[in-house]
């Protein structure tokens, strides 16, 4: 009996998708890096009572001089992860420095970054070309952990919504569109008067999040789920001014691609290792 990596093309596609999202997200901050992390940052130290001795993740919150160089090191490590250079070393750098940047300016980030930080941890052991038993097990376990983590996002977000009032009565999209910083005024004016649209989009969002973790295991349901998810997250990303959040979930769907679809996508983007 010989062990092998399960769905190596899917592992490769997801690795590329995940590190691409992290790089895009990092580039998004490029023009304001000094304002966020520089010595004259607009953010007050968030962890004045937690020294580096307690946890290295807080180091840049105390030593601002190194924060912007760390940001560039983070991006360089992401490029190495995408290209596949230096094996696991840049992956560890991405995970650790990613947390350092986060704790040096928490309000700049949202939950999608936290999700990809957890992916960054599991991806340390993922190597779609693994040949040793230990590496193969790490790769398979890492990919499984990423899938479980992704499904937990939908399951928990959906269940928390069931504890409230607005999602059950159908008013959540209406109230969300009234939050100025989450929407475009012209879009709000166009949509909120359509009560039926508010109700349908509310229940669609709620049911989608609750159903995804169950239905994704059925092969026939996957493509419709991906299409609906792209529409759902595309709307959130564009209409609610959270583009990185929408892309984070859409890129995460690659975790559930079957091997044939992953190979097809890799060939399309000319990243396949071998010709079919």
């Amino acid at each position: 009996m010989s062990a092998e990596v399960n769905a190596p093309a899917t592992a490769r596609l997801f690795r590329i998708a995940a590190y691409s999202w992290m790089l895009l997200n990092a580039l998004y901050f490029f023009t304001i890096r000094d304002m966020l992390w520089g010595p004259y940052s607009i953010g007050m130290s968030a962890h004045p009572d937690q020294s580096v001795g307690i946890n290295i993740a807080y180091v840049l919150d105390h030593v601002r001089e190194y924060a912007v160089p760390a940001y560039f090191a983070y991006m360089a490590a992401l490029v190495c992860c995408l290209v596949g250079w230096f094996k696991w070393i840049p992956k560890v750098v991405v995970f650790v420095v990613g947390w350092m940047l986060y704790y040096a300016f928490i309000p700049a980030f949202n939950s999608s970054y936290l999700l990809y930080q957890v992916f960054a941890f599991f991806l340390i052991g993922v190597d779609e070309k693994a040949t040793s038993t230990f590496s193969i097990v790490l790769t398979n376990v890492g990919m499984l952990a990423c899938r479980i983590q992704f499904l937990m996002v939908y399951a928990l977000a959906g269940m928390f919504k069931l504890l409230g009032r607005t999602w059950l009565e159908g008013s959540s999209v209406y109230y969300a569109l009234h939050l100025d910083h989450f929407t475009w005024p012209w879009l709000r004016d166009l949509l909120v008067s359509q009560k039926w649209l508010m109700l349908i989009s509310n229940y669609f969002g709620l049911i989608y999040q609750l159903a995804f973790p169950l239905l994704i295991w059925f092969k026939k349901a996957r493509v419709p789920l991906f299409i609906a998810g792209i529409a759902f997250h595309g709307f959130i990303g564009a209409a609610m001014r959270l583009p990185e959040f929408g892309l984070a979930m859409i890129f995460g769907y690659t975790l559930f691609f079957d091997e044939a679809l992953s190979q097809k996508v890799l060939r399309k983007v000319r990243l396949a290792r071998t010709a079919p």
Binding site: W99, S111, L156, A157, F160, K161, L162, A176, H181
Partner: peptide
Amino acid sequence: NQYMVPYFHQGWKLFAPDVPATQ
């Protein structure tokens, strides 16, 4: 609290349990 929370915490409560009716 010192290691697991800083490195593995998640927050999936955007617009949950309720969407705020104030801004």
